[in-house]
Simulated assay, not measured.
Amino acid sequence: MFLANLLIALREGLEATLVIGILVGYLVKTDRRDVLPKLWLGVGVAALIPLSIGAVLTWGPKTLTFQAQEIIGGSLSIVTVVLVTGMIFWMGKHSRQLKGELESSMAASLTRRSSGWGIVGLAVLAVGREGAETALFIWATVRSSVENSVLATTAGVIAGLVLAVVLGWIIYRGSRRINMKLFFSVTGYFLILVAAGIFAYGIGDLQEAGVLPGIMTHSWDFSSSLPGPGSPIYWLYVLGQAIFQVNVQPTVLQTIGWVVYTVPVIILFARQVHGRTRATSNGSTTPATPPNANNGSHAEAAPTSATARPDTPAPTVDP
């Protein structure tokens, strides 16, 4: 469980850290360091959002009946999957424009309110959204495995957030180049599989509460074949259960839910990631207009393309 929560906290924490770095960098670049204390105030308020959500989710349901707890837990697990899936696709689409959008919002806040108090609200919205998603996602994974090891679960979350802060600071200082596109692509696939497990787990909760049928109808049952705790296979199963909610006896509805979520989401995400890569590659290597076969010269084909589309630079041609 340590590794699972470390990777989740690292991915989600790094997003929030990058947002803070962009905001701080803009204020420094525009010589508005006087607004930095207000920015940090907004970040502090935003940090209270995930803490409050975590506290309510952890201790709030304790006074409810078992059925009510399962209904709330299953429903929130599914809501978490929806939010995280949307975040994965949003980050994949807007990661390149994120800096420009935040700086535009920052400039508008400074223009409307010269005192800079608008920055507090911007920081709360920008950072608080990331924090709320992180709290829900981590809670959903912790809820299903915290009984195995409270220490490992907590340590994984803390280590992931600390590492995210360190990486964010390194990126802000510019002392090291990190391929953020590759990072968010790889972790995107990872989070999809984690979310699929949470989705199946949420369905199981709703089945236990009687909201959904089929709690005793299993797709398969390998529980009797699971080796003892001394076997490496057993610990591999424990790791898979902690990260991806691997189940040796899932219900039919859980299996269907896992497949229905995972297959289309991975296909759409792969098209978004690799489709954008191919488009960028084609745009940088394919000439806008093919060479003119009549004059037999590649060098004379470039002005033709430039004349047809003045806003398109002429392609570079090797001699």
Rank of each mutant, 00 (worst) to 15 (best):
T80R: 03
V317C: 06
T285I: 10
L239V: 01
Y234N: 06
E300L: 12
K181C: 00
V194G: 01
F222V: 02
L151F: 14
L191N: 07
N282F: 08
A299C: 01
P287H: 07
I192W: 04
S145R: 14
G228W: 02
T307Q: 12
G116R: 05
I53H: 01
V28A: 09
L57Y: 02
A16E: 04
V84N: 04
Q254M: 10
A123I: 08
I158A: 13
L136T: 07
E12T: 06
I170E: 04
L64D: 02
A306N: 08
A107C: 05
R176S: 11
L226M: 15
G73P: 03
G204A: 04
W59A: 11
A47W: 02
V157L: 13
A209Y: 03
L163D: 06
V165G: 15
F222C: 04
I49R: 01
P319W: 12
W59M: 10
S175P: 00
I203Q: 08
S223L: 04
W40S: 10
Q69N: 09
A47C: 08
R173M: 08
L7E: 02
Y189I: 10
V24Q: 08
L182F: 12
K93M: 09
S115N: 13
V248H: 01
K62M: 14
D31G: 09
D318H: 14
I215M: 04
W220V: 01
S231K: 01
Q249T: 03
E147V: 14
I266P: 02
Q249P: 00
E103S: 07
E101R: 14
A135N: 03
G131R: 03
I71K: 09
N295L: 10
A107L: 07
W139I: 02
P315V: 10
L3P: 01
L253R: 00
I158N: 03
A9N: 05
L110T: 05
W258K: 05
A4P: 02
R11Q: 08
L151S: 14
A302I: 13
N294L: 11
L122I: 11
L236T: 10
T17W: 10
F137T: 14
T307G: 02
E147F: 15
F184S: 10
S95M: 15
V124I: 15
L193F: 15
F2Q: 06
G168W: 08
F89G: 09
T304H: 12
I88T: 13
T134C: 04
A68F: 00
A159Q: 06
S105E: 14
G188F: 09
K181F: 13
T304I: 15
G228Y: 01
R309G: 01
G44A: 11
A301P: 03
V56Y: 09
W59S: 13
G283A: 12
T280F: 06
L253D: 00
L6C: 07
S224P: 00
G86T: 09
G188E: 07
L57Q: 03
S225R: 11
Y172I: 05
I171A: 15
R129A: 15
L27Y: 05
V186Y: 12
I203Y: 06
L27D: 07
Q245A: 11
S231G: 05
A299R: 09
